[in-house]
Amino acid sequence: MYARELAKKHPELVRQVITLATPFADQANSTHAGWLFTLLNGGVSPMDEALLRQLGIDPVVPCTSVYSPSDGIVGWSGCVGTESEYHQNVEVDNVSHWGMVHHPEVLRVVARLLGEPRHRSFRSLLDACVTKLF
């Protein structure tokens, strides 16, 4: 989530964001760990509506969300964003939440993404065109 938020504030410094089982599009308390966070916060959800809306906005850099329906900790639907010019979702089967960082299929997805050439966002392309005009 930190990477996504930093990419929103400084897209010129970010090549791409790859999230693994990250519930940026989730509703408060819909993960298996949500009840614990609420309990530790005195019975109040630490996620208010404004924060949830902010987290759901995609950065203007290429973003890939890797998720698994068999996660077991995070609800997979909270890890899926709207497909767009900047965002894609990649489902991996039979991967636990803790397995995301070492499962061979997930590592192949991350390696493929890191090996792709740098993408220029629509914004940077537009900026380059405007600079040439003036």
Rank of each mutant, 00 (worst) to 15 (best):
A33T: 02
P11I: 07
R120K: 10
S84Y: 04
K8A: 10
V80F: 03
R120S: 15
V101R: 04
V80W: 01
W98L: 10
G56W: 02
E83V: 08
W35M: 05
V90D: 02
V92W: 00
V74N: 09
Y86H: 09
L113E: 08
E49K: 11
Q16T: 05
R123G: 10
S77Q: 14
G75D: 13
N94T: 02
H32Y: 11
Q27L: 12
P46G: 01
P117G: 03
F122A: 15
S30A: 07
V80E: 12
A111L: 11
D58S: 07
Q27I: 11
Q88D: 14
W35K: 03
L114F: 00
G99V: 05
Y2P: 11
A128P: 11
A3V: 09
F122I: 13
P62T: 06
G34T: 03
D26R: 08
N41E: 14
S65K: 07
N29S: 02
L126P: 07
V44P: 00
P59A: 08
A7Y: 06
H102C: 13
W35T: 00
V101A: 00
V106N: 12
L51Y: 05
L39R: 10
T38C: 04
M100S: 12
V74D: 12
V80D: 09
T64R: 07
H87A: 00
V130K: 15
S121Q: 06
A7M: 11
C63A: 07
G115V: 04
Q54G: 07
L113N: 03
I73D: 13
G78V: 01
R4K: 06
R53L: 14
V90W: 00
H97G: 07
I57A: 15
D26Y: 00
C129Y: 13
V80A: 06
T22W: 07
M100F: 12
V61L: 12
T31F: 07
I57C: 10
K9G: 14
T31G: 08
T31S: 09
N89W: 10
N41H: 12
E91V: 01
Y86W: 06
L20C: 06
P104W: 01
G72C: 05
V92M: 02
E91K: 02
L20W: 03
V95W: 12
Y67G: 02
V92L: 03
Y86Q: 07
S96V: 02
V80P: 07
D48G: 03
L36A: 08
V61D: 15
S77T: 09
E12C: 06
A21W: 06
V17N: 08
H103K: 02
V106H: 04
I57Y: 10
L126F: 04
P62W: 06
C63F: 11
R123L: 14
V101E: 10
D26W: 01
F24E: 14
W98G: 07
L40M: 09
L51H: 08
A25K: 10
D127W: 05
R4D: 14
I57E: 15
W76Y: 13
Q54C: 05
S124Q: 05
C63Q: 13
V106T: 13
S96F: 14
G72I: 01
W35N: 05
T22P: 06
H32L: 11
S121K: 03
C63N: 11
L36F: 11
G115N: 06
L133T: 15
S65N: 12
V106P: 14
V14W: 05
T31N: 10
R112Q: 03
W76V: 04
A21V: 09
E105F: 02
F37I: 02
